[in-house]
């Protein structure tokens, strides 16, 4: 059952995914979860958008996690995203100096989310992008997608994943430049303009 016998590889089978449910809101989100960028960093960008269901209604209970490299394309290896205060047992938050690369944001009552992070640098053959994991009530298995930043058309054209996405759907993976370092990225779980979701194998 739930005691896995690691001497028998055939018994090492995945634990099934389950929905995050409606009541995670007091447990998983944390203050400053979307403020990844160290204070005053020149490569700071703002990302914002909505999460919509198949009826076009915004989700007030979606959870968005972001994970990405720093502006040099280096993967951060520093902890401290959810620093706790050993004195009070309460939440202390990021220190505003180190970049952990990871953030977590719950959509607000209007289904809106935002994050301030650092502009990701290119890594490997990929155009600069952030990795996204979406959770919600009603979603039995989380969804992966990516946020590509517009601007460098040559890099986007050379990206191996974008090259395999149907041209009419490619735009769902590319944020819209709203000026002053702000980008819009809406996530549509179903229906018209459905976001391209990814499966890693």
């Amino acid at each position: 059952m739930t005691r896995i016998d690691t001497d028998r590889p055939e018994s090492v089978l995945p634990t099934p995914s389950h929905t995050v449910g409606p009541f995670y809101g007091y447990a998983l989100p944390f203050p400053g979860g979307g403020d990844l960028a160290p204070v005053g960093h020149p490569d700071t960008i703002t990302l914002q958008g909505h999460v919509y269901d198949g009826a076009g209604e915004p989700l007030p209970d979606a959870l968005v996690e972001l994970w990405g490299p720093d502006p040099d394309g280096t993967v951060p290896r520093v902890d401290g995203s959810i620093r706790r205060d050993p004195a009070t047992g309460g939440h202390l938050g990021r220190n505003g100096v180190e970049f952990t690369g990871w953030g977590r944001i719950q959509t607000d009552a209007a289904g809106h989310w935002y994050a301030r992070t650092l502009r990701p640098g290119p890594r490997g053959s990929c155009a600069p992008c952030l990795s996204v994991c979406v959770f919600a009530r009603g979603l039995l298995v989380h969804l992966f997608t990516r946020i590509y930043l517009p601007g460098d058309e040559a890099a986007l054209a050379a990206d191996p994943l974008l090259a395999r996405v149907a041209p009419e759907r490619r735009g769902t993976l590319i944020a819209t430049d709203e000026g002053r370092g702000t980008y819009r990225f809406d996530i549509r779980l179903q229906g018209e303009g459905e976001t391209v979701f990814l499966e890693y194998r």
Partner: peptide, 13 residues
Amino acid sequence: SVLRHPKQPPVAV
């Protein structure tokens, strides 16, 4: 789950 699951298959990476 009815309105919250994608109808398109995921793109494999």
